[in-house]
Structures are given as C-alpha cells and as structure tokens.
Design a protein around this nucleic acid. Structure first.
Lengths: 124, 124
DNA sequence: ACTTCTATATGTAAATTACATATAGAGGTA
DNA sequence: TACCTCTATATGTAATTTACATATAGAAGT
C-alpha cells in the first residue's frame, strides 16, 4: 500500500483541505539549495523551522523514496568520504515545479493563519 | 479508546512537534465569540479560514465531546425554536485558557511559516 | 403516511504518525 | 581477530487521525 496515494491530478501533495505535510516542501527546499543525503537531511530539517531537534529517519527515507518515485528527486550512491556509502539526492525540474506549487499552498495557509491570529487578538 | 490521548501535562492539544489540529482552536474561537450548537459550527467553521465549504460533522461532534470531557466547553439542550433539539455549547474559562495556549503555538507556527516562505522566495 | 430538513451521533477503512527495530559498512581498539 | 561504536539507510508496526459513510430522530410540510 502506497502511503501517498491521495494526490491531486498534478501529483502535488499540497494542502487539499487537510493539513500541510511540512516535511515534503522542507526536503524539496533543502535539496534545491544543494544536493544532500538522507542523514544530512535528518540533521538539517530542524533548521527549516517545522521540526524539533532531529526529524524522524523513517519519515525522511520514506518521503525520499516517494519523491524519487514521482521523479521529483534522483539519487546516486556516493562512496567517497569516510563511513558507509551514502545515497546522494538531487532535486529535478519536476521537484522544483512541485515546490512552486507548494509555495502557493503555503501562502494561502499563511493568510488563513495570519487572519486567525488577528481574530484571536481581537477577542479579549 | 480516546482519540485525543496524546496531550501534554496541561491538557493542551497544541502542536507538540506534530501538525496543528486547526479544528480545536477554531471551535474554541467561535464559541468564545458566542455560544453555538454543533450544526451552526459546521457551517461557521469555514469562515475561520482553515476549512472548505463545510466541515466534517463527525470531526466536529467528536471534538465537542472531547472538549466537554476536558471541561473546555459545557452544553445544554436547547428546545426553543423550530426543528429538533439542539445542544448549545458554551466555552468555559478552561476553554479560554486553552485557546490562549493555542495562541502561543499558532504564533510560533506562524513564525516558522513566514520564515520558510521568505526562504523559498530567495531561492530562484 | 410520506418526504424533507435540521441536528446529533456513531462506524469504519484507509492514511499517517511516532517510535522501534533491522541491516550493514567503516573505523577504532584491545 | 573479535568487539564495539558511529554513520547511514531502511523496514515494521501499533496507535492515532482523517475522510467518508451511515444511523437516529424529532419537526414540519404535503
């Protein structure tokens, strides 16, 4: 069973009336900056702002697999350097396009959130 | 089985490293404005901004029950007016306190979202 | 009697999250 | 060599949450 089947026609995993899954745009953003491997993402994701100290490896590797299935990233083994082989992930044009779809979604969510926060301020 | 057992010590259902559940603060906000019954909330929730045309009745009534269990709202049957009896929900001080906890959570989420959106703008 | 509308409530399959565990090579050290 | 630790990738799974379907029932009109 695919964990990510509820996509719209564009393949975008954007909000669609449910919550946003911050991990997808966060990973796409970090890979847009430069290619990284999974373990690096695990440490870098918190700097994006939606996660605590470290992000869940399970969620990351499954999301990377999903992104690769949907041609949003591509990967190759990197045996240079010390330690075990790393899989280096690179964003594709598809992935960049998807992040731009996410961008629109995030902005409309931002608007809703801003409005709601103002409403709460007016309450007291 | 309680659907809402993963609460922190304060009973606040706030973000806690997961996504926010917009329905809880949205309902508390609407009840802070004035008492309402469930069916009314179903129609009014979209005006808050996080939902589409109508919100899911199942989610609303279960959330109301949860809020009542946690003494954040109280209810009474309202047999006045036409149509079937309505259960009228009123926010308690507990509920107001909880929305203020949510407020802090929402603001920090707002910050993360604003920052992320700025980062994406800088990408191209 | 019947149908429709309002209103509350419950059932449940599928999706998602959180956390635990598995696998495995590199590198150090006793 | 055997043992341990660290890095890195990957899978398993119980509990939770969502989305959607269905149930119940009184009021009101035809």
């Amino acid at each position: 069973m695919n964990n990510f089947s509820n996509r719209d026609a564009t393949g975008c995993g954007c909000y669609r009336g449910r919550r946003a899954r911050w991990i997808e745009p966060s990973i796409l953003y970090l890979l847009w900056e430069h290619s990284r491997h999974g373990y690096e993402l695990m440490n870098d994701l918190p700097t994006v702002g939606f996660f605590d100290e470290t992000a869940d490896p399970g969620a990351i590797y499954r999301m990377l697999r999903h992104l690769e299935d949907n041609k949003m990233v591509e990967s190759e083994w990197d045996t240079s350097g010390s330690g075990p082989a790393k899989r280096l992930y690179t964003i594709t044009q598809n992935g960049r396009d998807n992040l731009m779809l996410w961008f629109e979604t995030l902005k409309s969510h931002q608007t809703a959130l801003n409005d709601f926060i103002e409403k709460i301020k007016d309450l007291k």
